[in-house]
Design a protein around this nucleic acid. Structure first.
Length: 251
DNA sequence: GCGACAG
DNA sequence: ATCTTGTCGC
C-alpha cells in the first residue's frame, strides 16, 4: 500500500525543496529524511526499540522540558531544553539551538521537523536529565512512534509526551477534578491518558515515550503541574525558545 | 467522496 | 506553530 493511501494521511506530498542538500544520512534516526516515505521507514525501523516497560524513575532528581518556537515566516526556529529540579521545579540549566525546520509539517511525522534542533540543544547541556517531557505525543501516534518515542529512543532517556490536543484515539472527558483521567484508546489499545491537570480547564494528553509506564508518566505530569495546565518544564522551555527566537531576530 | 490530522 | 479582538478574572 502506498503511503498516500494509508488511512489518516491525505495531502501527503514529497517535501519538495524545503530540505537543503542533505549530507550523508546517519543511521541513528536523528537526521531529516528526504521524503515522507523515508520518514515513515525510519519510524518503522525505530519503533521496536521503544522500551514499553519502564517503569522509569519514581523520584527523578531532574526533569527536562523541550519545546520549539517558529518565526512567523516559518523558515526559522528555536529549540529549547530546560532542566528543572524535579522537587522544587526550579530551572537548574537550559540550552537553546536556533536553526531551520528540518522537515515540513506533516501530522504523524512531526518529530522530523523538530528533532535535529532539539537534539542539538540537548547536546549543549552539561547535565543529563533523568526524564524528558516532550511537547507532543509518544505512543498516541498512528504508528505508535511520536516525538516522545523518537526522542527517547535516540537519547535512550526516559521520555513522555504531553500533548495539548489529540492526534489519534477516542476518549471521554475526565471528571472536572485535578488528577482525574480517562483512557485514550486507538485501534483497540490504550495509547495514553486524557489527564485533567486543573479543574475547569481543558485536559492534556499524556502518553509514554520511552522507558516509562503510563502510570508513572501520569504521576510525573501531575507533579509538574501544581498550578497550571501544562507542565512547568514545558512552560519554561516555551518561554526560553520564544525569547531566543526574538533575540535571534533582532541580532 | 467527506472528515480528521501533535506542533 | 503563528496571527488575531475581545473578554473574564485574579
Amino acid at each position: 500500500m502506498a503511503v498516500s493511501d494509508q488511512p489518516g494521511y491525505r495531502n501527503i506530498r514529497e517535501p519538495e525543496s524545503i530540505t537543503p542538500p542533505t549530507p550523508p544520512t546517519p543511521p541513528d534516526g536523528a537526521s531529516a529524511p528526504g521524503s515522507v516515505a523515508k520518514a515513515v521507514a525510519v519510524q518503522d525501523r525505530l519503533r521496536p526499540l521503544v522500551d514499553l516497560v519502564g517503569p522509569g524513575p519514581a523520584v527523578p532528581a531532574t526533569v527536562a522540558g523541550l519545546d520549539v518556537a517558529y518565526a512567523e515566516s516559518g523558515d526559522r526556529l528555536a529549540a529549547a531544553v530546560t532542566v528543572l529540579d524535579a522537587r522544587t521545579l526550579v530551572v537548574v540549566e537550559s540550552a537553546v539551538s536556533v536553526g531551520r525546520p528540518a522537515f515540513r509539517y506533516v501530522p504523524g511525522l512531526f518529530a522530523f521537523r523538530e528533532l535535529p534542533a532539539l537534539l542539538d540543544a540537548l547536546d549543549r547541556l552539561t547535565t543529563r536529565p533523568e526524564l524528558l517531557v516532550c511537547d507532543g505525543h509518544g505512543l498516541a501516534h498512528p504508528r505508535r512512534f511520536g516525538l516522545a518515542c523518537h526522542l527517547g529512543v535516540v537519547t535512550d532517556l526516559p521520555a513522555i509526551g504531553v500533548g495539548k490536543t489529540p492526534l489519534v484515539g477516542d476518549w471521554r472527558p475526565p471528571a472536572d477534578v485535578r488528577g482525574a483521567w480517562s483512557p485514550l484508546r486507538d485501534g483497540g489499545e490504550v495509547v495514553g491518558r486524557v489527564l485533567r491537570t486543573r479543574a475547569g480547564v481543558k485536559p492534556v494528553f499524556v502518553s509514554v515515550g520511552h522507558r516509562m509506564s503510563l502510570d508513572n508518566a501520569t504521576t510525573q505530569v501531575l507533579a509538574l503541574t501544581p498550578r497550571f495546565r501544562l507542565p512547568e518544564t514545558t512552560r519554561a522551555a516555551d518561554r526560553l525558545c520564544r525569547d531566543a527566537l526574538a533575540a535571534a531576530a533582532s541580532s
